[in-house]
C-alpha cells in the first residue's frame, strides 16, 4: 500500500485543545490515530514539538499500549477476540478461517488494502462467543461458514 503525505494541519485542533494539558499524551495519540488510522512518524514529531515530550518517550508510551499502530490499516479492521469464553468456544477455528480466506497473519493487511487482522483481548461479548469486531460492528456466534460469508459480503460491498 502506498503511503500518502501526511496532512499535519488536521492535528491542529487536537493539539490546541490538549498540548498544554498535562497528562494528555494518550488522549492526543488516540485522536491522532482516529484522524490518520495510525500514528504517522511526522505526527509524532509534531506532537513532540508542541508538547515538549521527547519523541522517544512518545514512542515508548505508544508501543506500550496495544491500541496504537504505526502502519496504516485496511478499510476493514478485523479485531478477533481472544478472550477465555471465545477460546473455550473454539475461536482458534475462526482465526484459521480468516487466515485461510485472506492469506494474512495476525497484524497484517491484505495486498488490496481491504482487510487487516488483529487478535485482541476480550471484547466483553462473551455470551456471543466466538466474537469479532469489524470496524464498529460486532459479529457473534461465529462459525467458519458464517465468517466466510461476512468477509465475502464486506468484500463485495467494498467494490
Amino acid at each position: 500500500m502506498e503511503k500518502t503525505t501526511v496532512d499535519l494541519s488536521l492535528l491542529s485542533d487536537v493539539l490546541n485543545e490538549y498540548a498544554a494539558v498535562k497528562g494528555s499524551l494518550i488522549t492526543i495519540l488516540q485522536h491522532t490515530q482516529e484522524i490518520y488510522g495510525y500514528l504517522p512518524k511526522e505526527a509524532i514529531e509534531l506532537i513532540s514539538d508542541q508538547t515538549g515530550i521527547a519523541a522517544s518517550e512518545i514512542i515508548g508510551v505508544a508501543t506500550f499500549y496495544t491500541q496504537f499502530r504505526f502502519e496504516p490499516v485496511g478499510k476493514y479492521l478485523i479485531m478477533l477476540c481472544q478472550g477465555t469464553a471465545c477460546h473455550v468456544n473454539s475461536s482458534e477455528l475462526i482465526l484459521e478461517t480468516i487466515k485461510d480466506e485472506l492469506h494474512i497473519e495476525d497484524g497484517e493487511t491484505t495486498e488490496d488494502g481491504l482487510f487487516s487482522l488483529k487478535c485482541v483481548a476480550c471484547l466483553g461479548c462473551c455470551s456471543l462467543s466466538p466474537v469479532m469486531m469489524i470496524n464498529e460492528n460486532t459479529y457473534g456466534s461465529l462459525t467458519p461458514e458464517k465468517t466466510k460469508k461476512i468477509l465475502k459480503e464486506l468484500r463485495e460491498a467494498a467494490v
Binding site: K22, G23, S24, L25, I26, T27, L29, Q30, G60, V61, F64, Y65, T66, Q67, F68, V120, A121
Partner: peptide, 25 residues
Amino acid sequence: IKAGAGAFVCGEETALIESLEGHRG
C-alpha cells in the same frame, strides 16, 4: 472520562494512575 489504550496491567491501581498521567502503565 479517560479512555484506556489497551493494557491489562492498567487494572492495577498504581499502573492505572501512571496511565492516567499519560505514561506507560
